[in-house]
């Protein structure tokens, strides 16, 4: 069980994440929604141990992750928002590096790499250097790397970014199946449809604070809205999207 307890992250006195508390249980998929700059990625980085919170702690199975970061990382899979990869390695070499650094048996790593590359449809590009990959291909490598060691906790930070429709559908089913197999999953995304269909619970973040934490169904009922998108608009959007769109169109039409 992954737990965020009163997480706060301040930069120059400004709270980017403010008193964020939630739990992700095994078998649960928690959707983490919020507009740009709301603190989703910051929270994900604190949950992975990449960032140290200004205050608050992250616990895994009741223990502060800082007490045994290496042990926690053995059981964590993380797909970051930015596809940071070593561009001079090929997709296969990158996965081999991750597998070796995770001390997985060589034969198992090779078997898994072959299978992942095939299943994600990037086998033909496996020996090419990553610098030649599209964003979607890089994302597929990152997802493969996060699954290589069969982790207990998975943190997806906008994993669908750059993926084509087919890959997004595969990802959606994959996340659901991983949860069925007992993985605790935090799924941060902009895409309401995926979150609504896949996640067992939804957390909505606005300006670093949690403004809603419940199942998508309950949130819809509570807010008397027909979709999660409308709930999100009501909770997070402070301006009328139609008016904003009109202002943008007017600005685009400006000639002098």
């Amino acid at each position: 069980m992954l737990e965020a307890n009163h997480l706060v992250k301040r930069f120059f006195g400004v709270a980017a994440v403010d008193e964020v508390t939630f739990v992700v249980r095994p078998g649960e998929i928690v959707g983490y929604l919020g507009p740009n700059g709301s603190g989703k990625t910051m929270t994900a980085r604190m949950l992975t141990g990449l960032l140290t919170p200004t205050s608050g702690i992250v616990t895994f199975n009741g223990r502060d992750i800082a007490a045994d970061m290496v042990g926690y990382h053995r059981r964590l899979g993380y797909v970051p928002e930015e596809p940071h990869l070593y561009p001079f390695l090929s997709g296969r070499e990158y996965l081999q590096l991750i597998g070796r650094l995770r001390e997985l048996p060589a034969a198992l790593v090779e078997k898994k790499i072959d299978a992942f590359l095939e299943l994600f449809g990037i086998r033909d590009a496996a020996e090419q250097s990553i610098s030649a990959y599209s964003k979607g291909m890089k994302q597929k490598v990152l997802i493969s790397a996060a699954l290589l060691h069969d982790p207990d906790v998975l943190i997806f930070d906008e994993p669908e970014s750059g993926l084509d429709v087919t890959a997004v559908l595969v990802l959606r089913n994959l996340v659901r199946m991983l949860a069925e197999r007992g993985k605790a999953i935090l799924y941060s995304s902009h895409i309401m449809e995926i979150v609504e269909k896949v996640c067992t619970r939804v957390i909505i973040l606005h300006r670093g604070r949690i403004v809603a934490d419940d199942s998508a169904e309950r949130l819809r009922e509570l807010r008397s809205q027909r979709s999660l998108e409308q709930v999100f608009s009501e909770l997070v959007l402070r301006s009328d999207p139609e008016k904003t769109a009109r202002d943008i169109a007017d600005m685009a039409a400006l000639h002098a």
Binding site: T48, G49, L50, V70, G71, H73, R74, L76, Y78, P80, E82, H84, L85, Y86, I98, L101, R102, E103
Partner: peptide, 14 residues
């Protein structure tokens, strides 16, 4: 650098 941190940070390496 930041790339090393992003890639190696979540791995179980001290």
């Amino acid at each position: 650098d930041a790339r090393d941190a992003s890639i190696l940070g979540p791995l179980p390496i001290p």
